[in-house]
Amino acid sequence: MNIVNTEILEYKKAFISDTNLGVKKHSFRKGWYIKIFSNEHVGIGEAAPIPGISKESHAEAGYAIQGFMVALKDVDYSVSIDEMLLLAEVHGCNVPSAKFAMQAAVYSLFSQNSNKIISKFLNQESNDSIMINSIVHDNSRISIENSRVLKIKVSDSNIYDIKDMIEKIYNSYGEKLLRLDFNGGLDLSKAIRICKELESYNIEYIEQPVLLLDDLYELRMHSGIPIAVDEILLNYDTAEKIIKNAAADVFVIKPTLLGGFDDLKKVFQLANSEEIKIVITSAFETFIGQSFIGYLAAAIKTQSYCGIFNINLFENDHLYPSVKNSKLVLKDICGFNA
């Protein structure tokens, strides 16, 4: 394929309302879009490091993408996908959000050339659809009534308030399967007490209640509820450490933190070998980033409910695909290659 042009665009989009990225609330999301042009198609990707969690900064992600673009300008022949992925690997080394964006643009471009959606290009046996969890949020796109799996971000450590909140949800909507996300806001003793008190409820997992591996291990020894890690799962090495320390039952994976499809597959295969459940979720990227995450989730044939396209995040963002009865059909994602 002949590459005729590349573009990089920096963006800063205001959230409709202040939104948690990790433990802190933010009023906007910053990132970069990269576009790669052939004679017939345009591939696009998004890099949006998570403030306070990603190991690279916004500026470092942009610098890595610019280096990739400079390298492509020197390519004056028909380039293969393997060559482009190698360039993405080199320039995205230690900058996972940039690698995520560059791979998205490359796979977007070559999948169009093959007349396939990205998930089918990556894996012909990929899922045609993925399931999406609802979330308790003022701007939720999926009604709680129509969802079997409900995520709740919990900022209150008072067990009576937490139980009261769950009871109100059950009374209003029936007994949903709950995911409770504490964003590392508890200490070990409080986490043990809360898990003990909540064991009678229908809870799929408690997400990142504490941050330290030793505390997560100790909590698992005292809890009948599965424990999930999120913020501390940054790459394959941290996944191995979490497993070595017996610190989690569930991996909640944000592909922006890992890098490319190859990085996701490695962690997915490792988790499967240790019988650890995988849940794929966004880091509140825009439509471009969340679309690629959806394709990746389908390509690895996930069976878990995913956390994408379930909140209206930004003003005037009308590209989000419809999610019917918690199901997102991948071919319904339109405009990704615009």
Rank of each mutant, 00 (worst) to 15 (best):
P321Q: 11
K24V: 05
K30D: 11
S157W: 11
E197T: 03
I166C: 14
A246M: 14
L234M: 06
S54I: 06
A246S: 14
L296V: 01
E218G: 13
E274D: 05
S147F: 00
F292E: 00
V136I: 05
I278R: 07
K301R: 09
A271G: 01
S108G: 14
N235Q: 03
I227T: 02
S54N: 11
S80N: 08
H137A: 03
L328T: 01
I162W: 10
S189E: 11
S114C: 15
K163Y: 04
S54W: 08
V4E: 15
I253G: 06
D138H: 08
F68D: 03
D249C: 08
R220H: 03
I144N: 00
V154S: 11
D230T: 05
I53V: 14
L177Y: 00
S140K: 10
K35N: 13
R179V: 00
A248E: 05
I53S: 15
S38N: 15
H137W: 00
E56Q: 05
L296Q: 07
I3M: 13
I16L: 12
K244R: 14
E240N: 10
L150C: 03
S172I: 01
K324I: 07
A61T: 01
V329W: 07
L86W: 07
N139M: 07
E175K: 11
E56C: 07
I300R: 08
F336Q: 05
N325R: 12
Y305A: 13
F314Q: 03
F110S: 14
Y236N: 06
K277N: 10
D332N: 09
I278T: 06
A338F: 10
